[in-house]
Design a protein around this nucleic acid. Structure first.
Length: 712
DNA sequence: GCAAGGTC
């Protein structure tokens, strides 16, 4: 008897949820789950032995081989290395172990350049040899998973190379420019890090340019002219069309008072479609603006209100990016959902109304997510809600769902225009004809502005003119939202990275405030880069990269050729930078307002207050001395007799009493903190588990809790 | 100490 050899097929996915889904579909639900470390892997037989193991996004990071922190540093792409990303070890280990005895590796990461690059990085970093295939699917429907599995493709190397080229370019340009900026400034002033990159650069430039537009803005006066008209018994107001800048025009218009003319009245019915169902992001934004809760309170992964509603089985997955209902849903499924809402008494009247007036097809939005449908209702609470906020969030989501199944609303829009000579006055009105979905979802603004009934052609008389003086306003600073939109328009960053990059600009000290005001350093960095490395502050670089990636993927362009060319360009810029390093450094560092808190005892330079993730510290601008502050201490006015600044803080004794204290930054003898045992100077220290006070002479340790030391 | 991109 011949026992047929069973092969081991290893399927590697981009994330755990996809591993689970693929295993479930291909095994018909009969897979076995094994937990390796914190990673869940799945095994099943389908003829051969199949193992599905997830990655977690990128698990290796492209980096320079260890070396000196200098520039220019241009490394051939093949000499860059893949470093394991901290925190991803469990995934790396699981994949490595499962790949060892696999006969066939199937890369089942997302079907885009980044997904293929993740596949390539796993193959190369783990040195996986042998047969490799690619599973190509763009949705996680059962049919598509099965189809892609039955039609395995060759590994899509060109697509992966396109992603690899992006990574190399971003790393080498970013690291070179960051090092160049930082090192040049450091010769003059102490700076932590001055970074830039393909996305940071143009984004910061937009912020700086906006600020300069605001600064150079000259307001202009203009006039809004309102005519009061009389038509028989009725009166209405209409605005003169056009922007009036010439005050002489006002007098001219005033002479028209008393004129008669005929009204031109146009009416138009408009239907207003319901809004689409929520995806995760729009849910957060909208629920936050209706309730005043912060997006974090709503969607925090562990304690968020919506997250809890999801875990309680009341709403569907909130992390979705889809604004579409499940593709498999038929009319009955929608009816079932509305019935669930109807079973929740505060909404049952509205839900019943929707059942009676349900539209043919639910309204859906453009955004889609292969893994999850839009946020919808899956259950009703049995015994109310734990808090009022839970109730509010649930009801808003339920109402949103109802709205998508409700009929259009209808408004009547009226425009009355009156011409007197060359001047046209216009009045606009809106009246609600039917609420439609607005009955169940009353959160979107739609104001009614009724106008008196005027017939088309009716005679009207201008009886008064009112003038309001106004000024043109400068453009507004960016808000996080408007800036993210602007980035999106230019193709800068991705939906996952835009907000992260804005945080980074803040952390670097380039911008401050809620409305992105550039700091002096931010402006100087933009100026220096515009001058020396214009490419890195130009959104065009991203456009060029996108085009190159497209061509690499199509096989029209060799990624090595592309990289050679762009790294050559970079090298040219960096050589120029190095030559001018002194002047650049002076220029940047002159913008760094190192607010001095004292003078360095070693070199006499300024002492400045900084903050790291471990807490505040004081450092000499030349880096000669550095003093840590306890997390809640601050530098206060005046100085210790030894010349160093004084700091103030408070400690809590074991009995819970708070004691305020001041001390010398250098903990010299004048420090008022005394050991409770022997009376000599005691020094607060920062340890792993918090802050404690240790006596320098008798060594006794008093555990005063100042505050918990932050973990890195 | 760096970038930008995934995922959590």
């Amino acid at each position: 008897m011949v026992i047929p050899a069973v092969k081991k097929i290893l399927i590697i996915t981009e994330k755990p949820s996809v591993a689970e889904r693929i295993a479930r579909v291909l095994s018909g639900g009969k897979m076995k789950e094994e937990v390796k470390g914190k990673v869940k892997i799945y095994r099943f037989y389908r003829g051969d032995l199949h193992t599905v193991v997830p990655a977690s996004g990128h698990i290796f990071q492209l980096d320079y081989p260890d070396g000196k922190w200098t520039y220019p540093i241009i490394v051939e792409p093949e000499n860059l290395i893949y470093k394991p990303i901290a925190g991803k070890k469990a995934y790396i280990d699981a994949i490595k172990r499962e790949a060892e005895d696999a006969d066939l590796i199937v890369i089942a990461t997302d079907l885009d350049t980044e997904g293929s690059a993740i596949g390539l990085e796993i193959l190369e970093a783990l040195n996986i040899k042998g047969e490799v295939k690619r599973m190509e699917f763009s949705s996680l429907s059962e049919a598509e998973i099965k189809k892609s599995y039955e039609n395995l493709k060759n590994m899509d190397y060109t697509r992966a190379y396109a992603g690899f080229a992006r990574r190399v370019l971003d790393l080498e340009w970013g690291a070179n420019i960051t090092r160049a900026l930082t090192l040049s400034a450091r010769n003059h002033r102490w700076v932590k890090l001055l970074s830039s990159g393909r996305v940071q650069g143009p984004t910061l430039r937009m912020i700086v340019e906006r600020e300069r537009e605001i600064r150079s803005f000259v307001p202009e006066k203009f006039y809004v002219i309102k005519g009061i008209f009389e038509a028989g018994e009725r009166k209405f107001e209409a605005f003169l069309r056009g922007k009036i800048k010439d005050p002489g025009k006002i007098e001219e218009i005033k002479t028209l008072v008393g004129s008669e003319s005929r009204a031109n009245v146009r009416e138009r019915k408009v239907s207003l479609r319901p809004p689409p169902p929520f995806d995760g992001t729009t849910m957060q934004i909208e629920v936050s603006s209706i309730t005043g809760l912060t997006p974090r309170q709503i969607a925090d992964r562990t304690r968020g209100i919506a997250q809890q509603l999801y875990e309680a089985g009341l709403i569907s997955y909130i992390g979705t990016e889809s604004q579409k209902y499940p593709k498999s849903w038929r009319k009955e499924d929608f009816l079932d959902m509305v019935k669930i809402i109807a079973s929740y008494s505060p909404l049952s009247r509205d839900a019943m109304w929707v059942l009676e007036n349900m539209r043919e097809k639910a309204v859906e939005g453009r955004k889609d997510d292969p893994a999850h449908p839009c946020i919808h209702i899956v259950g009703a609470p049995e015994k109310g809600f734990p808090t009022e906020n839970h109730r509010k969030v649930y009801e808003i989501i339920a109402r949103r769902v109802l709205a998508t199944l409700s009929p259009d609303g209808e408004d009547m829009r009226t425009i009355i225009s009156v011409r007197i000579g060359e001047n046209v006055f216009i009045a606009r009105g809106v009246v609600r004809l039917s609420d439609g979905w607005r009955r169940v979802y009353p959160f979107m603004k739609s104001e009614e502005k009724p106008l008196p009934r005027i017939e088309n052609g009716q005679e009207v008389k201008l009886i008064d003119i009112k003038v309001e003086e106004k000024e043109t306003k400068p453009p507004k600073r960016y808000t996080p939202r408007s800036l993210i939109k602007a980035m999106e328009k230019l193709g800068l960053g991705t939906k996952n990275t835009r907000a992260v990059i804005l945080d980074l600009l803040k952390e670097r000290g380039y911008v401050e405030g809620k409305t992105f005001r550039p700091t002096k350093i931010g402006e100087r960095v933009v100026d220096v880069l515009s001058d020396l490395v214009p490419e890195i502050v130009d959104p065009n670089m991203t456009a060029k990269l996108d085009e190159a990636m497209r061509r690499i993927e199509m096989g029209e362009l060799n990624h090595k050729d592309f990289l050679r060319k762009t790294l050559n360009e970079l090298s040219g810029y960096m050589i120029k930078f190095k030559e001018l390093e002194k002047a650049i450094g002076e220029s940047i560092s002159s913008a760094i307002e190192a607010k001095s808190v004292g003078t360095c005892p070693k070199c006499g330079g300024a002492l400045v207050l900084r903050r790291s993730r471990f807490g505040p510290f004081v450092i000499c601008i030349n880096g000669d001395v550095k003093y840590d502050l306890m997390p809640k201490e601050r530098v206060i006015e005046g100085s210790c007799e030894c010349g160093l600044p004084l700091v103030a803080g408070s400690i809590r004794t074991k009995s819970g009493k708070h004691i305020k204290y001041e001390r010398c930054l250098g903990n010299c003898d004048r420090s008022p903190l005394r050991c409770s045992n022997c009376g000599s100077t005691a020094i607060p220290k920062r340890g792993k588990y918090g802050v404690y006070v240790k006596c320098s002479s008798c060594g006794s340790v008093n555990f005063f809790k100042i505050s918990r030391a932050k973990r890195g």
